[in-house]
Amino acid sequence: MDSRDKTTDLLVVNNLNFYYGNNLALSDVSMPVKKNCITSLIGPSGCGKTTLLRCFNRMHDLYPKNRYEGQIVFDGHNILDKSQDLIKLRGRIGMVFQKPTPFPMSIFDNIAYGLRLNDISNKSVLADKVEKALKQAALWEEVKDRLKQNAAGLSGGQQQRLSIARTLAVDPEVILLDESTSALDPVSTQKIEDLLAELKYEVTIIAVTHNMQQAARISDFTALMYIGKLVEFDETETIFTKPANKMTEQYVTGRFG
């Protein structure tokens, strides 16, 4: 049934340390991210899962005094290298945030934003790509008649699917999800989970989630983090049924964290 090959490493994290100023926030994290799979990062608040996620697109570089050590290898290069072109990197590794982030412009322009950054200005090409992205994000039917309206007028769930569509429009190889369904109602969450189940055939997804059931439902691999360290990484089924680590077992059964 599942036609995916779950053995190729798309990204490999090697001995990653991350510092906010002098505070060590990630300590010696090593794990692979398999191509065309959904990898969940779980763990209690403050464990470093969002910090790890934001290393993959170097979001930490926006703020001063943040520092990486170690490697994240993507396509044979260490993306933590100082010489890494962040604009190119972020074009290939997209991100969807916890709260919807509609830009102050029309629905169409929101989706076209990333495309225009890549100098796509042909109107029919733009229109096609916008439609495709909105269809992928299961939003097309709801907005096709009001593409020119301001995106702020959409509901929260629609805005989040808009953010996903905007990320999909530029054809990234990896999508990072930072608790992207935590602010949504169950119906919108369901739509987004369905969407992820479709998307994994084309892209690789790394998802931070607080929701253990969601991690179990959607992901192929799961990593449990605790106080800046990786506790256990394995196939999701293993993590939830016969984890190697005592702490993992306690966490996934709800006895700790």
Partner: peptide, 25 residues
């Protein structure tokens, strides 16, 4: 800042983030 981060995450250079997102907002 999340709005700026969202634009950066799409690969926008800083001057574009300022002119097309922050100024507009």
């Amino acid at each position: 800042w999340t709005l700026r981060e969202a634009a950066f995450a799409l690969g926008a250079p800083y001057h574009k983030v300022i002119t097309s997102i922050v100024w507009r907002a």
